[in-house]
Amino acid sequence: MPYMKGEPMNDNKEMKSDAALEVSRRDFLGTIAGALSAVALVIVADDAVYIASGAEPGAPLPAGGYDPDKHSYVYVIDITKCIGCGSCVRACKAENNVPDLFFRTWIERYMVSRSGEVSVDSPKGGYDGFDPSITGDEITKAFFVPKMCNHCSHSPCVQLCPVGASYRSPDGVVLVDEKRCIGCGYCVQACPYGSRFLNPETKVASKCTWCYHRITKGMRPACVEMCPRGVRKFGDAKALHDEVSEIIATKQVHVLKPELLTEPNLHYLGLSMEVR
């Protein structure tokens, strides 16, 4: 297998994180560019082993100060608290430049009547709130469900991507390499949750990144940051005393479509059976 993690890589990584600590954020773009050009690819024997070497041994690849191997992110949504205000949807759109018509996160409204009839809506993903005039006969339960990419551990989207453009990062975030994606849309078909779309502007697959640019700087995803009711919680299972992993470990949490065994890392508190 040509692309296995080899021993030399592991050694490099140790040095990498140390050297990287000194790199300030402002320098880091320049550093990346420098490091990249410095890193030479040596092809050893028949297509088998890659060894990175160069002027700056152990230079940070791909970024300074942050080691993806030291984190493992988890996310919890507490449905019982969601007020359906759409702050997260608006925040996500603004933070990530999400194209019109598509959503990286959206809010669904469920209304269930005594007879068991379920009606669901999500006008503009909840971006402009919900219409109060839509009700039904004798609604016995109603609630909002924020949806987004589940960052599945066994994600069908990653499995099916033909070119390795969709991948799960070492810290557990499912991402799309926008420079390699061929825009086939296979992953969009593969995601059981409707979390992906082909971006009409860039023509590549796009989806929630858990605001990777924020979390790698120690910030929280924009949706979590902007939620006024603490519905959305973001945590790191590798951190000490992490509130979110504690919830997952001790509370009665649920995931969407568990029968598909995608092993989501997004858990729900108070999920009801009507939600798909």
């Binding site: 598509f102 959503f103 959206w106 669904e108 009839e117 379920v118 009606s119 669901v120 809506d121 999500s122 503009k124 993903g125 949806k147 969009v188 949750y193 409707g194 979390s195 992906r196 779309f197």
Partner: peptide, 8 residues
């Protein structure tokens, strides 16, 4: 009621 599609 078959009238809800995921927004995407």
């Amino acid at each position: 009621s078959l009238n809800f599609v995921f927004p995407n």
